[in-house]
Amino acid sequence: MTFFRPSFRHPQLPANQAGYYLRDYEGGISTLCAGCGHDSINGAIIQACYELSLEPHRIVKLSGIGCSSKSPAYLLSAAHGFNSVHGRMPSIVTGANMANRELLYLGISGDGDTASIGMGQFVHAVRRNLNMVYIVMNNGCYGLTKGQYSATADKGSVGKKGEPNLLESIDLCEIAIQLGAGFVGRSFSGDKQQLVPLLKAAMSHIGMAFIDVISPCVTFNNTPTSTKSYHWVREHSEATSTFDFVPFRQEITTDYENGSTEAVTLHDHSVIYLHKKDPEVAVTDRRQAVDALEEHKEEGLILTGVLYVDPESEDTHTILNTSERPLNSLEQAELCPGSAALKEINEELR
């Protein structure tokens, strides 16, 4: 939907700790359909970046192709963006991250872009535990090509065209957990209360932070019979826990009852406090995390929230033991061995 956004902002809106206002995190006007879940997710990303006081130009936003992949144009104008080709965002992020490990990489993709054409790149970026936030805006269908089912559409779900989806669906969160992502979460575009802190925690995690956000397609897949509709998701989702994300240095003011709250400290010393329904389930246990997803699926429920965290997981740079300095900052003097070394090599080859 194209509309005109007023440039006026309330004069008393506060700046964050880095001195930026919310509008500094905004982007171009969205051209997505009115009511599209993706726009709500963009709003949540903007809010999360603002609340974390990130410097907008130290964020890099990347995407593939599709409705979701247009999103980077609608947020963070001050950040460099890269709208690549279909399903290939993860490899572009891998290279970008290798070149400069100091920036925050925000990969935005869709269910077609990730679960079909980009499946190979997705799983391997996860295996590398690439330090990035990987957001899938998951609506179970291809929007730009007018509503074909995607690989995350649930079997039996019926979209606008009326024919049920006959194929098994892919659960990207389960795959991400199995393949070693250090942080995996699921949320709903209509649940900003949950989504913003989830994004903040993901952005604070070092390593692959994967978030699957169910984001109804109002045009092609918001029918009463679709399991990716606003109505269905509201009725059938259940959170693992409610949780608070407390960034490093922020004062902890709340008291939690012992036993029901689990605290997970991330690499940057920020903490996720999980207030759990079932104190026995540990989100730091890979097998329990997958079991919980499957158990809920059997009951016809979508499990949301923080699904799995391993704050100790090693990211790609650590695995490869690369320089702590950004590789793109190294100068010729350090990179080029020079003619004396070459003379030695020539000698070895005679």
Binding site: F82, S91, T94, G95, A96, N100, G120, Q121
Partner: peptide, 25 residues
């Protein structure tokens, strides 16, 4: 002072190069 990434296929191999070159390496 180098990152050598064995990719999943040649598509990703060049994607990695593009991402890095775009980002100044």
């Amino acid at each position: 002072m180098a990152a050598i990434v064995q990719a999943e296929d040649e598509l990703a191999a060049l994607g990695i190069v593009i991402g890095a070159a775009w980002n100044g390496a």
